[in-house]
């Protein structure tokens, strides 16, 4: 599966380690949230930061104690119509998580921009669509009404623009 990041397909440098497999001594690893909790003492001692796969039924509050060790949170969309991970992703960003936020599962071009706006910045996508389709889909709308979203430079946040002078959006460097 291609990994889309910063509007390019890039190599995925994380290795997923199943719950029963041994953790490697080096390299970036991706583990499930259950594993993270179960083997926290061991994982905390790993030299590198880790990635964690979070189900869309997990509570983000439970993730908080571990965030300082986490550089990647991978959230899943079992079907593109299942929107729970939009809220989980947004909550994590609202709580101040600044690491990579990756979307996995049924990720399609028509939802890409919505995912970016709530704070996702990398996407495991199907190889059905060429890169140009994703690049175009990433900014199919140039403006949004809601405040506090992640946006790209050329995107307008309508209410903040109409009423500048009040606290506007900060530029969001992570909205890859």
């Amino acid at each position: 599966m291609p990994l889309l990041k910063n509007n390019q397909f890039v190599a995925d440098d994380y290795t997923f380690v199943a719950d029963e497999d041994a953790l490697p001594a080096s390299g970036k690893v991706l583990v499930t949230f259950a594993r993270l909790k179960r083997d926290w003492d061991e994982i905390a001692k790993l030299p590198a930061m880790v990635g964690v796969k979070v189900a869309n039924t997990d509570k983000t509050d439970e993730l908080t104690p571990y965030l300082s060790k986490i550089a990647l949170v991978q959230l899943t969309f079992p079907a593109f119509t299942d929107g729970r991970s939009y809220s989980i992703g947004r909550e994590l960003r609202l709580d101040g998580y600044r690491g990579e936020l990756r979307a996995d599962g049924n990720v399609l071009p028509d939802q890409l921009q919505l995912m970016r706006q709530v704070g996702f910045d990398s996407f495991l996508v199907s190889d059905r669509f060429p890169l140009e389709v994703w690049q175009k889909a990433a900014h199919s709308m140039s403006l949004a009404y809601q405040r506090g979203l992640f946006r790209q430079v050329q995107e307008t946040e309508v209410w903040s623009t109409r009423h500048h002078g009040f606290q506007a959006w900060e530029e969001q460097p992570h909205a890859g």
């Binding site: 593109f80 939009y86 919505l114 709530v118 009404y145 809601q146 309508v158």
Partner: peptide
């Protein structure tokens, strides 16, 4: 109306 239009978090309820 404006706030709910294409709300990225609440488009797949």
């Amino acid at each position: 109306r404006q706030w709910s239009s294409l709300h990225p978090e609440f488009s797949f309820l």
